[in-house]
Simulated scan of single mutants.
Amino acid sequence: MTSVHLEVAEGVGTIRLDRPPMNALDIALQDRLKELAEEATRRDDVRAVIIYGGEKVFAAGADIKEMQAMDHAAMVARSRGLQDSFTAVARIPKPVVAAVTGYALGGGCELALCADFRIAADNAKLGQPEILLGLIPGAGGTQRLSRLVGPSKAKDLIFTGRMVKAEEALTIGLVDRVVPAAEVYEQALQWAARLAQGPALALRAAKESVDAGLETDIDTGLAIERTWFAGLFATEDRERGMRSFVEEGPGKAKFL
């Protein structure tokens, strides 16, 4: 049975984790997640993406029983595939919103970190508890968490393995918005739907400029921005947006 699905409606693709009761991220789910992230990247009818685990839980981490059976050689062989699955989500060149309910722990938190925005339920709990297993995060947590909340806060969460509730997650910048649990998906859908109406190439340019710029020095980052900025002058969306601004005023352009 497929444990993760892609559902598309009105420009928004929802990647839905479906491995009850806790959406444990086993190898099969990881591999399918990568396939669906790549599909969402390719499809023109997907202009924004939501990552969602359902009403009760986002994802409570890796499948520990599956991991327990793996030795050093097996994990050396698997660890790149694990990271590649999450990186495929992070590199979707479209806006990605994580709709976080319940637990987002370990790999679940790392998956949320791959999104551009995180909307959390008021009962959500997030964390990187791998240290309690004698491990460290292995799906990007040591890198993406520190880039998002800073190295000190990241080390606090990773060194202690403690969970943070939604309000603390909001305070430290781990999530962007906290809403009642029953409204998480709807709020994420509203956000994604709004972004799906924007200029697709400009949104891709903005995302890649920010993400790539974070990995390099300021001069190289400015060169990346400059290349994208100039390139967008060749697009129909730029013509449409500027014409609408001149003729109708700001914020009224409708993009294809």
Rank of each mutant, 00 (worst) to 15 (best):
E35Q: 09
E39Q: 07
E66V: 00
E10I: 09
A73R: 14
E55S: 11
R42H: 06
L25I: 10
D71V: 10
R19Y: 02
G54N: 07
F86N: 01
R16G: 08
M70Q: 11
I50G: 03
G11L: 08
D71F: 12
M67N: 10
D63S: 13
V76W: 01
A74R: 15
A48I: 06
A60T: 05
G61T: 00
R32T: 08
R19P: 08
E39V: 12
A73F: 13
E66D: 09
L29T: 15
A73H: 12
A62W: 08
G11R: 14
Q68G: 09
L25D: 04
A28Y: 03
V49C: 04
L33G: 04
D18Q: 09
L33F: 03
V49F: 10
E38M: 13
S79Y: 05
F58N: 07
F86K: 03
F58R: 01
M75C: 03
Y52K: 07
R47I: 03
E55W: 00
M22S: 13
I50F: 05
T14I: 15
M67L: 15
I51M: 10
A60Q: 04
G54R: 01
D44L: 12
A48E: 07
L25Y: 03
F58T: 09
I27N: 15
V46C: 13
R19S: 14
T41A: 11
G53N: 05
R32M: 02
A9T: 06
G53R: 08
N23W: 03
M70I: 02
A74H: 04
D84L: 15
D45W: 11
T14F: 12
A69D: 13
M75Q: 09
Y52L: 05
R32F: 01
T41H: 06
R78H: 14
I50M: 07
M70E: 04
G13H: 06
Y52C: 02
E66P: 06
N23H: 05
V12I: 08
I27E: 15
F86I: 02
G61I: 02
I64A: 13
F86G: 01
V12T: 08
E10D: 15
V46E: 00
K34M: 09
Q68I: 12
E66H: 11
G13W: 13
V76E: 12
L25R: 01
T87D: 14
L36Y: 03
A9K: 15
R80V: 14
T14L: 14
V49P: 00
L17Y: 13
A73T: 11
V46D: 06
F58M: 11
M70N: 12
